[in-house]
Design a protein around this nucleic acid. Sequence first.
DNA 1: ATCACTGTCATAGGGGCATAATACACATTG
DNA 2: CAATGTGTATTATGCCCCTATGACAGTGAT
Lengths: 101, 101
Amino acid sequence: MISAMILDGTYAEGDQLPSVRVFASEHGANPLTVAKAYQSLQDKGYVAVKRGIGMFVASGAVEQLRIDERAQFLTQSWPRIREHIARLGIEPAELLDPIDA
Amino acid sequence: MISAMILDGTYAEGDQLPSVRVFASEHGANPLTVAKAYQSLQDKGYVAVKRGIGMFVASGAVEQLRIDERAQFLTQSWPRIREHIARLGIEPAELLDPIDA
DNA sequence: ATCACTGTCATAGGGGCATAATACACATTG
DNA sequence: CAATGTGTATTATGCCCCTATGACAGTGAT
């Protein structure tokens, strides 16, 4: 969810992310869970921490995040989704407009 | 996985499914786990049990399964996948050929 | 210095799911 | 009848993730 927000520009490069407690409170989650998510993003270099201050979106994070998630999606997720679509006999035309629901 | 096998024709309508123990052994799973999966398919009417004999693919199961999973996919899965694709800036053309990996 | 804020760590508890090991009732076969 | 194979039920265990609660060190404002 946080990755999506960075990609969408909700949190731009250089912006400070909400504190783990604030973000947890806003989304009904546990601060520790948010902290783990932040830690994961930090490990991948998408955000950086200023000790005692907060987490900030790293410069170049959007582009790198898009590159990484594209590769992840195209190699991991999409092949299985494609198989599933084929198995159900769904035509590409049905996927273009959200009104098929 | 079992649903996919029924849709693919691995197990045709009227066919007997492998016993929970055999299927579990072949796939490195626990018989109870397979039994739960069979139970789920039974609840939805895709398979029927002959007491003391085994589980059999119900007549009309393929068509019903395709209808149900289509609805499930188009209303639940696809909208989120579509959002994800848009967020990553992936063009539909990149999704047609599996050689983008 | 004091306070409020930050990320981080430690401990404990709970829910979901798969596993593990039996046991039971039913059906077919020899 | 006895043996084998079927789905099903029971109980217990382990694993993983999230929650819950408290504490700590670093930073900035008052």
